[in-house]
């Protein structure tokens, strides 16, 4: 009863770099690999922070303009502008993530690469942010949008 269907492919575009939005593409990429699905992840705009060495472990969650902070840190938007509020909310979220036994972002990125997912930094975003491949986590490659579209031919596409 071995799986004879053609290999399923998933292409994920990660466009956001806040702590809360870094996890969905990583969790889904990892889940896909666990199920034997091929995965390419394209990190663009703020999503690039997830695979940028200097930023990946310092991602924060936004308090202002985020109506979903409850139940971690239910605070009115006006109070969210107080310095340190975002850092406190981020620390709290990191601790909740740890309780669920999910790794910190940097470790998670390594995990999905070890699991065989291919990670790409968007060339245009990197040029805009003055980054080179050396700024990305080892193993991630730089790719143009057109190349990514060509590469994801036949894949299911997911935009985060």
């Amino acid at each position: 009863m071995a799986d004879k269907k053609p290999a399923r492919k998933l292409a994920i575009i990660a466009s956001k770099g806040s702590l809360d939005m870094a996890y969905p593409p990583l969790i889904l990429a990892n889940a896909a690999r666990m199920s034997g699905v091929d995965v390419d992840v394209f990190f663009t705009f703020w999503g690039l922070d997830i695979i940028t060495k200097k930023k990946m472990n310092k991602l924060n969650v936004a308090v202002v303009g985020n109506p979903s902070m409850h139940p971690w840190f239910h605070i009115p938007t006006l109070l969210g502008i107080i310095p340190g509020m975002s850092a406190a909310a981020s620390a709290m979220m990191r601790s909740e993530i740890k309780k669920l036994d999910f790794p910190p972002v940097g470790e998670f990125v390594q995990l999905v690469m070890d699991a065989g997912a291919n990670l790409f930094g968007c060339k245009m975003s990197m040029d805009m942010m003055k980054l080179t491949e050396k700024d990305l986590v080892e193993g991630a490659k730089v790719l143009g949008a057109m190349e990514f579209i060509e590469m994801s031919d036949g894949a299911q596409l997911l935009f985060v």
């Binding site: 071995a2 799986d3 666990m34 199920s35 034997g36 070890d114």
Partner: peptide
């Protein structure tokens, strides 16, 4: 992780 994937090709989770 890498070894786990090589031991169980086709998705070690399954």
């Amino acid at each position: 992780t890498k070894e786990l994937y090589s031991l169980f090709p086709g998705g070690p989770g399954k």
